[in-house]
Design a protein around this nucleic acid. Sequence first.
DNA 1: ATAATATATATCAAAATGATATATCTATTT
DNA 2: AAATAGATATATCATTTTGATATATATTAT
Lengths: 178, 178
Amino acid sequence: MAKDRKIDMVILGLLSHDNLTGYDIKKQIDGSIRFFWKGSFGSIYPALAELEKQGSVRRLKSNDGGGREKIIYSITSQGKEILKAWVRDEKASNDLKYETLMKLFFGGVESKETALRNIEVFEEQIKADLKVLQVYKANIEKALDEEDHVYFYLTILFGIETYEAYLKWCNKARKVLA
Amino acid sequence: MAKDRKIDMVILGLLSHDNLTGYDIKKQIDGSIRFFWKGSFGSIYPALAELEKQGSVRRLKSNDGGGREKIIYSITSQGKEILKAWVRDEKASNDLKYETLMKLFFGGVESKETALRNIEVFEEQIKADLKVLQVYKANIEKALDEEDHVYFYLTILFGIETYEAYLKWCNKARKVLA
DNA sequence: ATAATATATATCAAAATGATATATCTATTT
DNA sequence: AAATAGATATATCATTTTGATATATATTAT
């Protein structure tokens, strides 16, 4: 692998919008980008330390004295250059790991009812996520004049489009199994 | 994490259909299930060794003597039980890591042309994959009477449904950016 | 006042990736 | 017949990521 830490780009990307703590970064991943990416604390904090060491992010403020420990990071011009180079680079790995589908693929070892139940669980999750996405969409459509929002909007549209396809598939799958 | 190796289930699942070598397993992952899962040699071979040690798979035949080294594995009844228990278990993690989308999400740091180019690259890949899926679909529809094929068929339908949604999104995205 | 939850950083074993090394077998070209 | 290229086959390794856990403070609800 060697020097291809995707989490670095997530961090630099989010910091290009705002100054954030590691915790903030996690929250934003779980919020706005979770429909196409995810990341854990275990990768965020070590990555932040490395990015600081290499000069791509800067420690803006940290409560060393009293109060709660809290480190706010900002992106440096070097970090911004790295981010831009990555955006310009055409190659991109798009991987999905759908355990539901895998359970279904090997569904032959169990009953049809089990397969249907797995589809149902999947469907419920997607429906819940779709509702969240639709709220996001409605909110962002009020603020589409700002350029950065357009890109956010596109990823929301992606989420909605794919999740609706999943729901369509759930219905088809039920019919095929019946 | 501790004791939650997903690759084990991929291996047990594939072995529940056929006796296979590690290399065969990789080929099947890259072939039939790559639209919702992927796996590398680096996880397959160590997992096979562990599964054998715990008695979930059995070494069927290995050319220890002359000729090329080749180890064919088969699933044991214990392995089948583990596989069934996993299929019955409702919880499933469905994660996607779409670098294209991430590049688009942070597209604001670069030009609109870059964003459009990233969409184009994504679209080309999806179109190529969709063609493969359609061939799979046509072939399997001739053999849908066998029960196991139905589950394979469902995953193909999933692939087609989602990939068509991706293409629809590509068109929408272009319009939004224009 | 106290309990529960959210904020915040950090670390770790286990798992997975992607690359590389090694070697044999098969098909094609010269 | 020899050489070359590509497919088959196993194995290992550093790097990256996950998911869990530990620790501690701040905020909110009871």
